[in-house]
């Protein structure tokens, strides 16, 4: 069975939008962080998809193999994953501090509290 030529890309787009929607529309800070993670991973899927060569193998050179998938997107995404987890860690640390300081991690309630202080 043949996958349509752009299927993976479209799926990646759908995933990205789900993540982005969680970031924008959800008021819970943990949910926002999770959403950011989903968004970023979906971008990684886009990159890795573009690195795939039909009939290729992992880019570890070996005898008798002639077609390899593209290693460069892999390298980029390795870096991006690390950046992603770094962001997640910092975001979560902030969430913990916000919870301790404000007693809530819901955006609406935070805004209400802040407006009271302004």
């Amino acid at each position: 069975m043949e996958v349509p030529g752009l299927f993976n890309y479209w799926m990646a787009v759908v995933l990205m939008m789900a993540g982005l929607y969680a970031v924008i529309a959800r008021g819970n800070l943990v949910k926002k962080i999770v959403g950011l993670g989903v968004f970023q991973i979906s971008v990684f899927v886009l990159y890795i998809t573009m690195g795939k060569v039909k009939g290729g193998t992992a880019p570890i050179l070996g005898d008798g193999i002639t077609v390899y998938s593209n290693p460069l997107p892999h390298v980029l995404i390795l870096t991006a994953i690390v950046v992603g987890v770094a962001t997640t860690a910092l975001g979560l640390a902030l969430v913990v501090r916000i919870r301790e300081s404000f007693g809530t991690i819901e955006e609406d309630e935070l805004q209400a509290i802040e407006e009271g202080e302004a």
């Binding site: 950011l36 962001t87 902030l94 404000f102």
Partner: peptide, 23 residues
């Protein structure tokens, strides 16, 4: 303490911006 929420919002929007850049 509002520095914390400011930093969080910056983190979220900044990461979205950076991810757009990566896309």
């Amino acid at each position: 303490r509002r520095a914390l929420t400011a930093a969080f919002r910056y983190l979220v929007l900044g990461t979205v911006g950076a991810t757009f850049y990566v896309i």
